[in-house]
């Protein structure tokens, strides 16, 4: 464990907490894409298949449980909670995420470290996470008023992966033959997709104005 990875995991945890706070306290999911939340639930399910078979550390297991539990809770809130679901904008959140899942699955079947079920699912989870934010970014461009919590949620979600890239650089430098091209390439694509959001988020923070993405 290194400071980059710990900060990254805490940033990721913070993003989930910010979103749960928004949904649980003000009972609203306005501006949040259910499609992205569903994709993340799938990402964690496919990535943590080894939660019962490979014990790495208490930290690792606890964090896996937290990410699985929170991602499914958020999907449940947005789909079934009688108050929260009313603020879900299904007419705007129309990204067909199955068109993201299929190519990722095919790619995972073609490019993986070992052709086993768990390994292909693990690889699929990285390819899928790289593009999981797309429905949310599309929704942001459609909904004019982005509230602060939503903006913070997306910023933290993007920042966690950027911090993981620092972690991978650190581990590549300090650990002999630590090479994992699949997470590295996926994480790079994922972080680049946040590029313009980070730019507009920084502008809104610098000029102290409301966050607005160009249409």
């Amino acid at each position: 464990m290194n400071i980059f990875r710990l900060t990254a995991d805490m940033t990721h945890l913070m993003s989930v907490i910010v979103l749960l706070l928004k949904i649980h306290t003000i009972k609203s999911c306005a501006g949040i894409s259910l499609k992205t939340q569903e994709l993340y639930a799938i990402v964690f399910t496919c990535r943590y298949l080894d939660i019962f078979t490979d014990f790495i550390s208490f930290y690792n297991t606890i964090m896996k449980v937290i990410f699985l539990w929170t991602s499914f809770s958020i999907v449940w809130y947005m789909r079934y909670h009688k108050i929260v679901r009313r603020s879900y904008d299904k007419d705007q959140d129309t990204f067909r995420h199955v068109f993201l899942m299929l190519p990722c699955l095919v790619l995972a079947l073609l490019i993986n470290e070992r052709f086993t079920f768990k390994e292909v699912m693990w690889t699929f989870s990285f390819y899928l996470e790289a593009v999981a934010i797309l429905p949310q970014l599309v929704l942001l461009q459609r909904t004019r008023n982005i509230d602060n919590l939503t903006g913070q949620y997306i910023f933290l979600l993007g920042a966690y992966r950027a911090l993981y890239i620092l972690n991978w650089i650190y581990r590549y430098v300090t650990e002999p033959n630590y090479v994992h091209w699949i997470p590295w390439m996926s994480g790079l694509v994922q972080t680049l997709l946040y590029g313009d959001f980070f730019y507009y988020y920084f502008l809104s923070w610098k000029n102290n104005v409301k966050l607005q993405l160009p249409a």
Partner: peptide, 10 residues
């Protein structure tokens, strides 16, 4: 014996 590289990251 191919040591299974531990997937120690989340």
């Amino acid at each position: 014996l191919q040591v299974q590289i531990k997937k120690d990251e989340l």
